[in-house]
Amino acid sequence: MGQQTPDLLAARVQSSALSLDLLLSDTERDDCGALAIFSGTVRNHHEGRAVTGLEYTSHVPLAERIIEEIEAETRERFGVPVCRVQHRIGRLGIGESAIIAVVRSAHRAEAFAALRHAVDATKARAPIWKEEFYPDGSSSFVQGCCIAPDQAIPDA
């Protein structure tokens, strides 16, 4: 992967496989005793229905900006020096990683809290859409969260 490494690390949204190893090596810090990691993988069911795979699509330029904003807001709000989130797009099979998030901080309490915020905010605010595929070949888009600034409608 050699020369692709810088691009993969810079991207918040990418079509190639996510690499937790790359993200960890890129964020190493001697002043952080806590490392919190979340990886969201594609599971084989949703709301009682078998799922064979997912396809994620995204408005990439806007998603990149919003995820960078979430990272910065997380670092500031929780006082953690490192927060990075990467989301995969395209067709994913069961077990593949769709999102990875890394927080590093001096101590564990703020690392756990910051990680949860970063992942929850990315799911609720980044313009990314999930289409589920079922064993009979049909598919449907998953109901999501409204992101209109002037129309905050609570969603599941």
């Binding site: 330029p61 605010r125 999501g144 969260c145 600034p149 002037d150």
Partner: peptide, 28 residues
């Protein structure tokens, strides 16, 4: 959204604007 900025429904349009229509999101 226009470009990478989310805009409210009250935002005034200009000739040549490209407006993205973004349904509720479901990443993660």
């Amino acid at each position: 959204a226009i470009g990478t900025t989310l805009v409210p429904r009250s935002h005034l349009l200009s000739e040549g604007d490209e407006v993205a229509v973004l349904p509720p999101v479901s990443g993660g």
